[in-house]
Amino acid sequence: MQFRHFFPSDILQPYVKQYYIFESDADIAFEDIVCPSGDMEIVFNLGEGSWEFLNQNDYLKTPPIELWGQITKPLAIRSKGKHTMLGIKFYTHSAAYFLNDDIAIFNDQVTDVSDIIGDPIKALHASLFETPDAQKRIDLVEIFLKKRLIGSEKKSNRIEKVADILKSIKKDPAENNLGNIAFKHGITPRYLHKLIYQHTGLSPTSFNKINRFQISLGLITKNDRPLTSIAYDSGYFDQSHFIRDFKAFTGVTPSAYLENITPVNQLLQ
């Protein structure tokens, strides 16, 4: 397996966290769990292999161009065959610039992006197939995103307000007084909730929980400090609260997670 990461151009840096290309020549089947990251992704499948995700009690095959909505609970996936994937990882709020739907309708599922955007993204997918060079593929994606960005100018003020609110919440991961944050931004708590949910797919409380979880995940992966220290440094009131949230987002305890880290799981967090 090989992962390569690419930084966006200056124009797209406020919207795209990173691009990545995942390649696997191993024609094997495996299963994994995807945990909440707080971000959304578009993934272009350019290889021969197939991916499936668990929807209720059935595994469904992912489409050629995948939109990963907000994952709010552990999501089981499985794969077989050889893969080449190009992914666009957006910030929590920024997928809303490129999609016309309320983001929350995509929660906890993998959607066919061609059903949402149509012929333009189908044409991009075809061009990516015909372009084997990695950097040229990234360039094609950037041209596509810049065109979409021009068409989102009317809603940019609302999305930028969402970005500012999320920054306020992230400044203190233990912060739970959303009333103060709403007052700071000159809106009511009810409108704050509606604004964030509409443009991120998450409630302010859920965003805060996933943010704390992601902080703890980074600290756990280093495996160089006790769980009590990780809990407090991630904004939890106590270790039991931390373990309870961690298990809700991963399906396992922190110690069990450490024993089962996989490259694909790390990529999708």
Rank of each mutant, 00 (worst) to 15 (best):
Q2N: 12
F3H: 15
F7L: 10
P8M: 00
S9K: 05
Q13M: 04
Q13R: 09
P14Q: 08
E23N: 11
D27I: 04
C35G: 06
E41C: 06
I42V: 04
G49T: 09
W51G: 03
E52L: 13
L54E: 08
I65G: 05
I71L: 02
I71Y: 01
S79M: 14
K80P: 06
A104Q: 14
D108M: 12
I117A: 05
P120N: 12
L124T: 05
D133W: 15
A134C: 13
K136I: 09
L140E: 04
I143Y: 09
I143V: 12
L145E: 00
K147W: 11
I150Q: 13
S152T: 02
E153R: 12
R158Y: 08
E160K: 09
D164A: 09
P173N: 02
A182N: 03
F183R: 11
K184R: 09
T188E: 03
L195Y: 06
H199M: 02
N208S: 09
R212E: 00
I215W: 07
I215H: 12
T221K: 14
T221I: 15
D224T: 15
I230G: 04
Y232H: 13
D233R: 10
S234W: 07
D238Q: 10
S240H: 10
S240R: 12
F246P: 00
Y257I: 05
E259C: 08
N260E: 11
V264W: 15
Q266I: 12
